[in-house]
Design a protein around this nucleic acid. Structure first.
Lengths: 410, 410
DNA sequence: ACCGTTGTTTTGAGTCTTGAAACAACGAGG
DNA sequence: CCTCGTTGTTTCAAGACTCAAAACAACGGT
């Protein structure tokens, strides 16, 4: 109950410094006055903090802006080249690594294919390490300039002294990812579930900008969600919160690959949609069995399905039904969480949402209570597939803004 | 994003004072050393803060405790008689008001029946005002000794400059409860949904003690939930979070009184259970129609139903099914929230849980993912029907512990 | 050149926490 | 009975920080 732990007066300083940095980062560029207004600090304190940030080279003055009549405001901005962050995305078929500066513009990227049939941890770790080396070499950036590395992994991340990864679908059980990767680099490492990572990207730079309570809903082959409460990711007790895909919406319904039945994922996951279509058509695209096709194939199949929807009544009916179920899943989120925004993302989510957003909204409205529904807007994600890498890069960046991380060289 | 707003160095003091008070309140009695350890403050600062609290009469020394060999620890405790708080519970059939001291021991209570057929706001407000006067007179407590009044209302509370209440079932729409009650008293008022209020009571004093992430699930005639995240109530954007009862668990299922269908409430709410039983038996207890019976009747009917379960196969089957559905609802919470504890409460919840807890756990286990399920314990609430009043009293108390509230006289 | 306006910095005062040292209250052992 | 070691609490001086007010700076208009 109540974790209030502002100890020393020095922590106060750190806190105020963080407040200024966060403010500046998300409202860039802005003047000292703006910062004063945004943080509630006195102009004097802002001057102090900013002086420090200027001296450290983290922010720089960036021109000025006329004020009506008086002294012009000096605009401040984050100096993108102060440092770099690395984001890595461990997907089902490939490992992607990106190098970003402080403004999160990409400076280099690398990609390594994985064998979708078996995801061996050592292969993944080696790919990340290789990617790290590659992007640094590519952009001519020295490791000393890197603030940290963030990794988005499929599965639950148990944050402890060393991050452990539990990947249900990959058969990973308490894999000591951090220790394994530590063998290849001394940089600060952070791990997070890739759905949460992607959610954070949408929250910071996509459709979720400015939201304090939001749900980012991700539909790919499987289904997941990231819950944002009070402006930051909600993790839960063992940081496995957000398993929306295995929420039951049809008691006694279709069998799900998780072993339960009636899960949302068994109706709106890409694999499930194709499965259902296959069962209905008993022919055509998709997989009728349970084998996981390469994502590329799955993606093409679903795209074709969506495209045919105009002409094929069977496809239309299926999609209508999918929107119905998806609306129910979203309505449940709205009733439980009362978010101000629900963002639909993931490759399949974007594909479906493009065509079905109206139907989804309608179904969600019918299945949720009036007031919470009225408070929530349902929108499409704005970020593409690079969102996971970007979101991963966000992890060390957040720590930097909090004032914890510094560059290795002092 | 990030609300960091520790302005002045004085706020720091207030924060540390609050940290000490909360610590002491929930680990009572304890020594200055314990407080130092619990809050992370230096012994010197604890002494300072405690000196202040002693001078104000909020805490008092309460004996001492031998230390092995050295100076004995002086035990500190909250002085219960420093002030009082009032809690009011607006139920479907009655208004209950309780007067509590700082230690939340009851000093007086009052109850006023309501006509269950129509809940007129002015009647409710008058009952609360009468109850307030009555409990104060009864215990011989002057209003100047009262720190505040908390009210638990059925419906969504919109916290603004003045609390507004939206009671779906009562036909209350944006009722300015605070303004209405303000006409009768000058005391600080706080309003909250009664499910959240009850949840807070369980969290502080019942089965939820010490939990940081928990879900308190309430089953009465209707169904609701209170979500606790990071040790405090999660409210959502328009403070209507936790509408678990109207979460869909059977797409296209039974019609619910909210207008949607397949809601959890339509399966496990007391009214719904009796309804289903009536439909199955086409005779016996319960109501076969949709009219809301007086709660007393409903309560008796459900108790009878549960009692017959041993002998009547129909009743047994119905309860088994109810446990199945309830387990699904709980599993959904576990998957989404990853709480460390799920607490089953409400009069019907306790009645059912008493007999069905094992079956409910089993169903929840089958419908949730392994890891989050393993992290969550499912337990019965420990508090009786007075929990709402107690929880309501908790609202002004929390503000007092935060250092905001003082007694009116200085 | 002067004035009003607006943005930023300096200054002096006031608060707060803290580590170290002092102080207090006990049991044990001579 | 006195001393000593131990443990819990308080005092004290130093250091850190924010803030309000005042000073300063940079502009347009007249």
């Amino acid at each position: 109950m109540h974790d209030r732990r502002h100890r020393t007066v020095r922590d106060l300083r750190r806190g105020n410094r963080a407040a200024v940095l966060w403010s500046l980062y998300f409202d860039r560029p802005c003047s000292r006055q703006d910062l004063s207004a945004a943080t509630g600090l006195s102009p004097a304190s802002v001057t102090n903090v900013v002086r420090e940030l200027l001296a450290e080279g983290i922010v720089a003055e960036a021109g000025s802006q006329d004020s009506d009549g008086g002294r012009p405001r000096v605009l401040l901005d984050v100096r993108p080249e102060y440092g770099f962050v690395v984001g890595a995305d461990v997907g089902e078929t490939r490992v992607r690594v990106g190098l970003y500066d402080l403004a999160l513009t990409e400076h280099a990227k690398a990609e390594y294919p994985l064998d979708p049939a078996e995801q061996r941890v050592d292969v993944v770790v080696r790919a990340i390490a290789d990617g790290l080396r590659a992007v640094l070499a590519d952009a001519g950036v020295s490791p000393t300039q890197v603030l940290g590395v963030g990794v988005g992994v499929p599965g639950i991340v148990e944050q402890g002294r060393e991050a452990l990864v539990h990947g249900q679908t990959y058969g990973w059980d308490a894999v000591p990812m951090e220790r394994l990767l530590r063998a290849h680099t001394d940089l600060p490492l952070r791990f997070e579930n890739c759905a949460k990572t992607m959610g954070q990207a949408e929250l910071w730079f996509g459709a979720g900008r400015g939201a304090r309570n939001a749900a980012v809903v991700l539909i790919g082959s499987g289904v997941g969600a990231a819950l944002i409460s009070g402006g930051s990711m909600y993790l839960g007790t063992t940081s496995s919160a957000g398993e929306w895909g295995h929420t039951t919406i049809v008691a006694g319904g279709r069998r799900c690959r998780c072993g339960s039945d009636g899960c949302l994922e068994a109706y709106v996951g890409a694999e499930a949609i194709l499965d259902r279509f296959g069962a209905a058509e008993a022919s055509g695209f998709g997989t009728s069995g349970s084998g996981t096709p390469a994502t590329g194939t799955e993606e093409a199949a679903l795209a074709t399905l969506v495209a045919t929807a105009g002409s094929s009544p069977a496809a239309t009916a299926l999609l209508t039904q999918t929107a119905y179920y998806l609306g129910i899943g979203i309505a449940n989120l709205i009733n439980l969480f009362n978010p101000e925004r629900v963002i639909l993302g993931g490759w399949a989510g974007l594909l479906l949402g493009d065509r079905l957003l109206v139907a989804i909204r309608e179904s969600a409205g019918r299945h949720s209570l009036r007031r919470p529904f009225a408070a929530a807007s349902i929108e499409l994600g704005e970020l593409g597939p690079e969102a996971v890498t970007l979101g991963a890069a966000t992890l060390p960046l957040a720590h930097f803004l909090d004032g914890a991380a510094r560059r290795q060289t002092s």
